[in-house]
Structure formats: C-alpha cells, structure tokens
C-alpha cells in the first residue's frame, strides 16, 4: 500500500491535483484511512495507465472514462471467459468434445 505522496512520486506525470480529481471522478479506487488516502498495487498500476493514456497517447480528458470503461469490460469479459473455460475443462471428455463440436460447426 502506498500513501498519496508515495503514489505521486512513483508515477511520472501524476500530480496532487490530478490524483484528487481522478479519485473524485471515480477513475481510481482509494483506500480510506484515518491518516488519509492510500493506494494498492493495482491502483498505482491503474494510475500509471491513466497517465500514459492522457500524456503519451493524448487521450482527451472527456474520452478517458469511456476508454477506461471499455477496458474494464474487456478485463471482465476475459475473466468470465476464463471462468467458463475452466468450468468446461473440468467436465468429462465426452462433454468437452460436444461443446468443442458446437463451437466449431464446420
């Protein structure tokens, strides 16, 4: 877990004002403690990605929530797909074969 100050120092391009605004807009989750906000590994990585999108890919501020929402959906879909795959993988071979046949009608 990283404090607000540590988080800012870890990520080039992240400022206090940006962090404040992004938390308020709900782009990133924050840890609430008596001592102030702290951020986990995934939050730091997400902040780094948002900085990259904003500064290096020049994604417009208004477009950013759309990009993040689509990305969140991609990761969700991948997660659900993996869950489905492992459920199929746990089935006996004849059932797996039947599903495979349906997925590949040719």
């Amino acid at each position: 877990m990283f404090s607000e100050r540590e988080t800012i120092s870890l990520i080039p391009g992240l400022s206090e004002a940006r962090l404040q605004a992004w938390v308020e807009r709900g782009w990133v989750a924050t840890v609430i403690t008596e001592k102030g906000r702290i951020f986990g590994d995934i939050d730091v990585a997400r902040l780094r990605l948002i900085c990259t999108l904003r500064d290096e890919m020049e994604v417009d501020q208004d477009l950013l929530p759309t990009v993040m929402r689509l990305l969140d959906q991609v990761y969700d879909l991948r997660r659900d797909l993996r869950t489905t795959w492992s459920a199929i993988a746990a089935e006996p071979e004849n059932i797996r074969d039947r599903i495979a046949a349906r997925l590949d009608p040719a």
Partner: peptide, 14 residues
C-alpha cells in the same frame, strides 16, 4: 493486476 483471477475493485462492468 486486472487480468488476474483475484477480486479487484474495478470489475463488474460486463
């Protein structure tokens, strides 16, 4: 982090 198996606060979008 986002593509792992564990729970994370950014899921539930799909």
């Amino acid at each position: 982090y986002a593509d792992g198996r564990g729970q994370n606060p950014y899921q539930g979008q799909a």
